[in-house]
Each structure stands twice: as C-alpha cells, then as structure tokens.
Design a protein around this nucleic acid. Structure first.
Lengths: 205, 205
DNA sequence: GTCTATAGGTGGATAGAC
DNA sequence: GTCTATCCACCTATAGAC
C-alpha cells in the first residue's frame, strides 16, 4: 500500500523469485542455485535469509495466504452482492494464470506427499480459509436470492475451489488459458453469477 | 487378459513401481534409487530396461493411456446409456484415488513445465483422448435426452476432466477421499446422471 | 540381465573470512 | 549480509565384468 519506490528488501525478493519458481515448476523442481542465479548472489547468502528450504517454503505459503486473505478482504470491502464477490474471487485465479502460474497451493497440493509437515499444515490451512470465505458468500448469496445452487454451501465452496484449481492445472498443460475462461464462465453461470452484459455471445446448444 | 499367474516381466514391474511413485510423489520427486530399492536390484540394471528417465516417463504415460483407453472401450461395450457411461467414467477416477494416487497425467500436468517435450506431448494427447471420448458421450446423451447440460459438448467435456482432476488434487491434500465423492456426486447431478436409487440420503438445503 | 564401480553433476547446507 | 570454499548426500548415466 506504500507509494515508496524503494527496492524491496532481499528477503522479499527471494520470496518473489521462489514463489514464481514453485508456481511454475513445483517445490521439488527448483533449487537455491536457481534463485541465486536470478538474483546474482550466492547460494550461501540465501541461507542467511532462509536457513533451510523447508523454512523458505513455509514463509512462501504464509505470505501467499496473507496476500490472498487481503484480496478477499478487499472484495468484501468493495463488492456488495454475492454474485459480484464470486466473480471477483474467480478473478484472483484468472490473474494468477495470466502470468502462466499455477496457484501456489494448488502446485503444493500436487507435491503434497513430499512436503515437510509444517508446509503441509499451511497448505491445508490455505484451502480451509478459502472454503470458509466462499461458504459465507454462498450462504448469504442464497439467502438473498442472488445465487442459486443446491446442497450445503460448504460442499459447493469445496467444489468451487477444486474446480478452479483443476481448470488452472489443465489450462496450463494445454497451454491454452482460454480453457480456464471457459470453465469459469460455466462455473459462475451454474451459480447464477454470470455476467450476461459483458459476454460477447452466448453459445446455445 | 491372460489368466496366467506368471510373475510380470521386469520392465512391467519397473513401470508399476515408477507409476506409483509418480502418482504419489511427482516426476521430479522419485529416482532410479527408489525403484531399485523397491525391487532389490541395482540402479544400473534399471538403465538396461529404460536407458533414461525421460524414456521411462514416456513409456509410463503410453501404458497409462493405453490402459485408460481400454477402460473406456469396456465402458462402451458394457454400458448402454450415456448417464451410465458417465458414472463409469467417474468410477475410473474414484478407483485411482482409492489407492491414494493422483491421476498420472494430472500429476504430470503439475510437473508440466519441467518435463521433456516427448512427455509433454503424450500428456496433452491423454487429455485430448479423454475429452474426445467424453464429448461423444455428452453429444449422444443430450441427443437422446438422457443427459442435460448447456453449451457445447466439448466445453462440458473439458470442464468435466478439469473438475475431476481438481477434485482429486484437493481430496489428496486434505487427506479426505470423501471430498472427491461429494464433488463427483455434484458433477454427475449437474449432468442429470445422478444415481438417486443408491444415494443413502440426499441433503436438502 | 544383473552386477560392481565410477564418472560427472547438482542438491541443500555449513564454516569462517570480510 | 555477502562472499569463498567446502562437505556430503544424492542424482542420472556409463563402462565393463560376469
């Protein structure tokens, strides 16, 4: 939120680069050497800021979740109805994919079995926070007759998260971001949160 | 299809173990040493059967796709209506997850950026074959008024695949296979392919 | 086909100078 | 905070004996 143009501190820059590497390659497919090369410093220097790769991973998820929760708070502050909130939520994922990245925690979910316990815990916590927020949005959206869906809100929230993560995963594998747009349009439509005004044309049958 | 009880040949056993490792840990988180230890042979012996890890990966996807296509052919041969076919298709994924495995190609989709080109090609081919089969099922299912959905069949097929992969991914991270069941029930219901008779109880609102 | 032995590289991590 | 230098474990892969 600061308007200062000061260069980010070293720890933050390390996290930026590591985050990008994990989101594109996975936790087991990047090394301290990769980060060091990108920053023009040595591997040893990295260990001063993050003693182990496990610690680095923990900080990575922690920061990612904080930034995600901040985005959710902004949505709550700026969007009135549940449909608009849902569209904004999907928009977060869309922005992530725009940079050819997978969701950090979606990627870590694939690496899950190989992660240190501390990181596993934080990944689960990330998804639970997402589901909790979505559950509230769905509950209220249905109560106010803005959103339409059947079944318990929490199950629909979980379905939304997994469908979005899966759509990101496949869109990346096909190198076709358009597949993600198609999936989200369908998802939002199912919940009665589509945006008919800005849709270019609606395919019929 | 043979009824012989002969021990599988070495190459096949290697593939079995490698497949399990990739499905649980990912392509970059297993080594020849892991396979060698599980088989009580040396790493060098593995290289006789699969000269490089890239070749091993190719054979892995090739075999997986062949077995998947065979399963689809069995569905076509034994199931009449599109709804039943769709449920059987979801059943394949359910069986994979039962062994605490992720779909092989779903896992490789996460590792995608780090894969050799030859494996990338095969992964995409796997998903395209799935989408093609599903597209046909959806087309005919709607034509015969057995399945209900809106939009082009191919987009719905893609949505199904990505939603299933995402549901597997998240169910594994939460260590709760029940989440996958919930997601598939919802998916099948959306397409009018639910199985109301065997559902224990249907949650209402 | 499987072994021993080894090459050549990279992984995360540490010690200690500056 | 960053460096050089180094450690040891592990990686994929090969050569050549059996």
């Amino acid at each position: 939120m600061s308007t200062a143009l000061a260069a980010p501190d070293t720890a933050a820059r390390i996290l930026d680069i590591a985050e990008h590497l994990v989101q594109t390659r996975g936790f087991n497919a990047f090394s301290y050497a990769d980060i060091a090369a990108a920053m023009n410093i040595t591997k040893a220097s990295l260990h001063y800021h993050f003693p182990t790769k496990a610690k680095l991973g923990e900080c990575l998820v922690e920061r990612y979740q904080a930034s995600f929760l901040a985005a959710l708070a902004r949505i709550d502050a700026t969007r009135d109805d549940a449909a608009s909130k849902l569209r904004a939520y999907v928009g977060i994922y869309t922005d992530v994919l725009k940079n050819d990245r997978m969701c950090l925690c979606g990627m870590l979910a694939a690496d899950y079995a190989t992660l240190p316990e501390t990181i596993k815990d934080r990944v689960r916590q990330f998804f639970e926070a997402n589901e909790a927020w979505l559950t509230l949005v769905l509950q209220r959206g249905r109560a106010w007759k803005i959103l339409t869906f059947s079944g318990p809100p929490v199950e629909n929230a979980r379905f939304l998260v997994s469908a979005l993560e899966g759509a990101m995963l496949l869109a990346r594998a096909h190198e076709e971001p358009a597949r993600f747009r198609s999936a989200t349009a369908r998802l939002l439509g199912d919940f009665g949160a589509g945006k008919p005004r800005t849709v270019t044309r609606r395919t019929r049958v």
